[in-house]
Design a protein around this nucleic acid. Structure first.
Length: 761
DNA sequence: GAGCGATTAATTTTT
DNA sequence: TTAATCGCTC
């Protein structure tokens, strides 16, 4: 294809043709960012740059796969295969496989996912005799993760006064010790967690100048996608790798920065121009994706953020329909509404299933949509959520495979030494671990030559048997043997419950995927490694089995907004627009958090090409109980002129204000009359929403301890204001209080676990 | 040590 | 609500 430059607009073309030196592309949503990146790569290759010298880093496997495919298409030959295109994690993992011995890790190191990492933490906390209610694994792993992403190792952590004060404040004085123990345990196990792939990569380049030089000379051109989502570690690595040639091309959009919880900082965009002389800056502001209405809505919403790089997204596309705002009674009604709307659109406008996406804030929201879609026989597919590889039976199976490849890994050994049950209980395992620690050995080293326990010895012999097949058998044959001789498959087969059947099927699917891996034909000129080690390496960074294939299956797609980034759909449902859900209650405390939620909403809106629905429910089930939520503040940031209010409970007449809905007249109410409790709830809502005023919390508002609250106490609620506790019910952990908030809000039942209340003295 | 009910904790987002 | 952990009994 020689005319690949045609069809680019002016700034796009400048970005593609800029050859040497740093360039930053600020690319608005739908402005052809991927097109620019892929065309740029193709252009470099057309002009004599060897594919082996180009490194392109993305954030998701999906984005990497798409980029590779599109470069291939643009080039029309198979050269693209030689490009280094992948996620930060996968490319660095690949490099670390080669260089790991320099850091004292085995080349076939295990990659721990978050569950594995939590398991290690849990063990450590237990061994240190700490309270795991206070030292929660999830909290600890987040903290360690943040440290690593900020390039802070255990030693620096201990020395950092700011961190130390924080830990002291939260009364977690042993954090440094835990981090220490965690790092050395991972090392001893020959394992790296996700963050290590960045952290150790940095250590590697930092410690070994020759290694750094090697990769600096390998990668002549570096391209970074979604640059606004890079963290300090990624930033430092890119800077080092690109330091010699400075041929760094970063593409990003500060308005779509949604990964600060992973340490990402928009600062990296601002910093870029300071780091290099003569940075070429290109702005892509023309949107080719969405209707004018959708762009208008997006611009209005994001305009409420204070922090942003000035730019104006515009489009030549047609105006399009108004967006539909729908308010429903419950989350189930919301599900029904969406399924109905999909059916209706399919009849009226002939959309296919795959033209629809349902985007939510949290994975837990998918249930209601799944049910309603299933009921209406609309095929759908869930992306993300609990990944296939996280299922217990799959993890057990994989633990065998990982142990066979890397016997240093104590976590996997402990996981499966008694799965299926073979009479090696917890007490025995603890003894083994203690003994191993005493001799400074790994558990495997300890039992390898015989342990004096027949059951353990049998297990060792079995694993050794599998190991002997490593050289001669491919991944599938070996995995099959493992399933057969370990008794894993038999055990699942014997379980005839519904869940057991599903587990059996999952294991079969795992085997299928291994088979597919082994049977993928070698491409021309290269012989792919079909060993078990190679397979494990490939899947450990994969989030879902069928991420890559089935892309074009004609199904409605359900996913979080986070995983929808970079994608587009003709019709988008952005659902669950409720306070405490979206924006999430976790983000309400500071402006930065709230602005990130707003950017997330911006991302959701800008996924839509033609039609957009925004929905929310008055009440929804959370933890099995019905809770009420207010309309999200983000909904109120959309000008009325762009909204079709038929289902919103608002008047469709122009000129009415855009406050919270005033009544139930236009509300969706299927099943409504049949369910008295819902009717009551609606009446209550109708009577309270009209007068509801949002309370502004006192300046010194802090949540007090639930345990200290008693009947008769005066308390302050962030939204409902001041009230008196009338009754208390439920156990210490799900205590529910009835609180009289006076005229404005009346008596409310508040789950104390949830709500933040301040005791008024 | 295994198996079964009972209890309880979790929900932000991802590699 | 659900998945994981706890604790009791055999």
């Amino acid at each position: 294809m020689s005319n690949y430059l045609e069809g680019l607009n002016v700034p796009q073309r400048i970005a593609v043709e800029h050859r040497d030196g740093p360039i930053m592309i600020i690319a608005g949503a739908g402005s052809g960012k991927t097109k620019v990146l892929t065309t740029r790569i193709a252009h470099l290759m057309k002009n004599g740059v060897d594919a082996f010298n180009i490194l392109a880093l993305t954030f998701t496997n999906k984005a990497a796969a798409e980029m590779k495919e599109r470069v291939e298409k643009a080039l029309g030959n198979s050269e693209a295969r030689n490009l280094y295109i992948g996620t930060f994690h996968s490319i660095f993992a690949r490099i670390l496989r080669v260089e790991a011995p320099k850091l004292g890790y085995p080349a076939n190191f295990t990659i721990y996912d978050t569950d594995d990492a939590k398991g290690v933490i849990r063990d450590i906390v237990k061994e240190m005799n700490l309270d795991d209610k206070h030292y929660k694994p999830a909290y600890i792993i987040n903290r360690i993760s943040a440290a690593k992403n900020g390039l802070i190792g255990p030693e620096e952590y201990r020395k950092d006064t700011h961190i130390q004060t924080e830990d002291a404040k939260s009364n977690r004085h042993r954090m440094s010790d835990i981090y220490d123990a965690y790092a050395s345990r991972c090392f001893k196990n020959g394992a790296m967690d996700f963050d290590d792939l960045l952290f150790k990569m940095h250590v590697l380049l930092h410690t070994f100048p020759d290694v750094l030089a090697k990769y600096q000379h390998r990668f002549h051109y570096i391209l970074i996608d979604e640059y606004q989502d890079t963290n300090a570690a990624q930033y430092a690595i890119i800077k080092m790798l690109g330091a010699v040639r400075e041929n760094i091309c970063v593409v990003g959009d500060d308005a779509q920065s949604i990964y600060s919880f992973r340490g990402a900082t928009v600062q990296n965009i601002l910093q870029f121009q300071d780091d290099y002389d003569d940075v070429k800056v290109v702005k892509l502001e023309q949107n080719y994706r969405s209707t004018q209405t959708i762009i208008n809505v997006a611009n209005n919403v994001i305009g409420n953020n204070q922090k942003q790089i000035p730019k104006e997204l515009w489009t030549d596309n047609k105006e399009g329909d108004k967006i539909v705002l729908a308010r429903t009674m419950t989350d189930n009604d919301e599900g029904r509404f969406v399924a109905d709307a999909i059916k209706e659109q399919q009849m009226r406008n002939h959309y296919a299933n795959k033209d629809f996406a349902i985007l939510y804030r949290t994975n837990a929201q998918s249930r209601a949509f799944e049910e309603s879609l299933r009921r209406m026989n609309i095929p759908y597919k869930l992306f993300g959520g609990v990944s296939f590889y996280q299922r217990k039976e799959v993890k057990d199976y994989l633990a065998y495979l990982r142990l066979i490849v890397n016997t240093r890994d104590e976590e996997n050994l402990k996981r499966i030494i008694n799965v299926p049950a073979r009479g090696i209980g917890n007490t025995s395992i603890m003894k083994l671990v203690a003994a191993a620690n005493e001799y400074g050995k790994t558990v495997w080293e300890l039992i390898e030559q015989g342990s004096g326990n027949a059951k353990v010895d049998n297990f060792v012999q079995m694993i050794k048997g599998f190991q002997s097949m490593l050289q001669t058998k491919n991944a599938y044959d070996l995995a099959f043997a493992v399933g057969k001789y370990s008794g894993l498959v038999q055990e699942l087969y014997n379980d005839k419950t519904v869940e057991g059947l599903a587990r059996y099927e999952n294991v079969q699917e795992l085997l299928n995927s291994i088979k597919e891996f082994t049977e993928t034909p070698d491409e021309e000129g290269e012989i792919l490694d079909k060993s078990l080690g190679s397979y494990l390496q490939q899947i450990s960074l994969q989030t879902d089995v069928e991420n890559n294939k089935d892309e074009d299956m004609d199904v409605v797609k359900l996913m979080t907004i986070h995983s929808a980034k970079g994608l587009e759909f003709p019709c988008v449902f952005s659902v669950g627009l409720e306070e405490t859900l979206f924006p999430s209650s976790m983000s309400l405390y500071d402006r930065a958090g709230l602005e990130e939620e707003r950017r997330l909403f911006y991302v959701a809106i800008t996924r839509a090409r033609e039609r957009l629905w925004i929905t929310y429910a008055n009440s929804r089930y959370r933890f099995g109980t019905l809770v009420q939520n207010d309309e999200s503040r983000f909904v109120q940031e959309i000008p009325l002129a762009f909204i079709d209010k038929t289902f919103s409970g608002l008047s469709n007449k122009p000129g009415s204000n855009n406050g919270p809905a005033k009544g139930v007249s236009g509300m969706l109410n299927q099943n409504f009359d049949k369910v008295p409790s819902l009717k009551k709830l609606a009446d209550k809502l109708a009577s309270t929403t009209a007068t509801q005023k949002v309370h502004t919390p006192s300046a010194d508002f802090t949540a007090d301890d639930v345990a200290d609250m008693n009947i008769g106490m005066k308390v302050e609620h962030q939204k409902f204001g001041f009230g008196t506790i009338l009754t208390l019910e439920g156990g210490p952990n799900n205590r529910i209080a009835s609180i009289d908030f006076g005229a404005g809000h009346g008596v409310k039942k508040i789950m104390l676990n949830y709500a933040k209340l301040k005791i008024v003295k």
